[in-house]
Computed example of a mutant assay.
Amino acid sequence: MEDLYLTAETDHGSELCLSPLTDRQIAMSGQELSDTGGYFLFERVGSGDHAWINIIARLTSEDAVDRMRLMLSLR
């Protein structure tokens, strides 16, 4: 699967995202990940260098990515 970047705005002004994570996004989350492969469902609050990333889930199959995209109406 080619890299997708899917998003949806939340009711409280943040953005729900489904995509691979960059090293910069991982650093912005403040979390340590043992495996950075696959796609991640995460919430992004703010933009640019001051954004905050909250990693919610890691998806490891194309089917999981497609199902999550449909369930959350991500585009």
Rank of each mutant, 00 (worst) to 15 (best):
S73Y: 08
S73K: 14
F40T: 00
T22Q: 05
L4G: 06
S29I: 03
D63Q: 15
S61Q: 07
I26M: 10
L18M: 10
T60P: 00
F42R: 00
E15A: 05
V65C: 10
Y39D: 09
D23Q: 14
H12Q: 13
A27C: 05
P20F: 06
D3V: 14
L18F: 11
G13A: 04
R69Y: 11
D49I: 03
T36W: 00
Y39N: 10
E15F: 00
G38M: 02
E2G: 11
R44F: 00
T7F: 14
R58M: 04
G37E: 13
E43L: 12
A64T: 09
R67P: 01
A51S: 12
L74P: 09
T60L: 09
S29A: 08
L33E: 02
L4Y: 08
Q31P: 01
A64R: 12
N54T: 10
Y5W: 12
V65D: 06
G13S: 03
E32Y: 08
I56W: 07
L4V: 15
Y5D: 13
S34V: 07
D66Y: 04
A8S: 13
Q25S: 05
L70E: 15
H50W: 02
Y39S: 09
P20Y: 06
Y39Q: 06
D35R: 13
R24Y: 15
T10C: 09
Q31T: 05
G46A: 00
R67N: 13
R75V: 15
S14N: 14
E43V: 11
T22D: 05
G46R: 00
T7R: 14
R58H: 04
L41C: 06
A64L: 09
A27T: 08
E32Q: 11
R24E: 15
S29Q: 08
L59V: 09
T22G: 07
G30W: 04
E9K: 12
D11A: 11
L21S: 02
R24N: 12
H12S: 15
M1Q: 12
E2V: 10
L6Y: 09
S19L: 01
I26G: 06
G38S: 06
T10P: 09
G38V: 03
E43K: 12
G13F: 02
M68E: 12
D63E: 15
Y39G: 05
S29C: 09
S14F: 03
Q25N: 13
S14K: 12
D66T: 11
M68A: 15
E32T: 11
H50I: 00
A27E: 13
A57T: 06
S61V: 09
